[in-house]
Computed example of a mutant assay.
Amino acid sequence: MAADDRARAHDDVAPYPKIELHVHLEGAVRPATLFALARKNGVALPVDTLPELERFYDFRDFDHFIDVWNVTTDVLFTAPDFRQVVVDYAREASGFGAVYLEGIFSPGQYLSRGIEARELFEGFTDGIQDAWEQTGVIVRLTPDIDRNRPPESSRAIVEESIRFRDRGVVGVGLGGRERSAPTHAFAELFARARDGGLAAVPHAGEDDGARSVREAIDLLGAARIRHGFRAVEDPALVAELLDRAIVLDVCPTSNVRTRVVPHLEAHPLPRLLELGLPVTINTDDPAMFGTDLAREHAFARSAGADPRRLFEAGVLGQVAGDEVRTRLQRIGESHWGRVDAGREPAV
Rank of each mutant, 00 (worst) to 15 (best):
R118P: 00
V339P: 06
L21Y: 09
R6F: 06
G127W: 01
P107S: 13
A231D: 08
V137S: 03
R244H: 09
E122K: 01
A200W: 07
W336D: 01
G337K: 04
R338D: 14
P143S: 13
R325H: 09
G290Q: 02
R118K: 08
L53I: 02
V47M: 09
A200K: 07
D12C: 01
E119S: 06
V238Y: 10
P31H: 03
D243M: 11
E344Q: 14
G304Q: 10
D63G: 10
E344A: 15
L316K: 14
A216S: 15
L273N: 08
V261K: 06
H24G: 11
A239D: 15
P51E: 07
G321L: 12
W69Y: 15
D218F: 13
T72L: 02
L53G: 01
K40L: 06
E233F: 09
D63Y: 12
V169C: 03
Y16M: 00
R167E: 03
Q129A: 15
V319Q: 12
D48A: 12
A44F: 04
A199K: 05
H267S: 08
G342K: 10
T283H: 03
T183W: 06
L37Q: 00
T280Q: 09
R338Y: 14
G321I: 13
E133W: 05
G342M: 11
D130S: 14
H297C: 00
L189S: 10
W69F: 12
A320K: 07
L328N: 11
R226M: 11
A193H: 09
P51Y: 06
L174G: 02
F289C: 03
G197D: 10
I145M: 15
A346W: 10
R55L: 04
L174W: 05
N148L: 14
F124Y: 11
F289P: 00
A14K: 12
E240I: 08
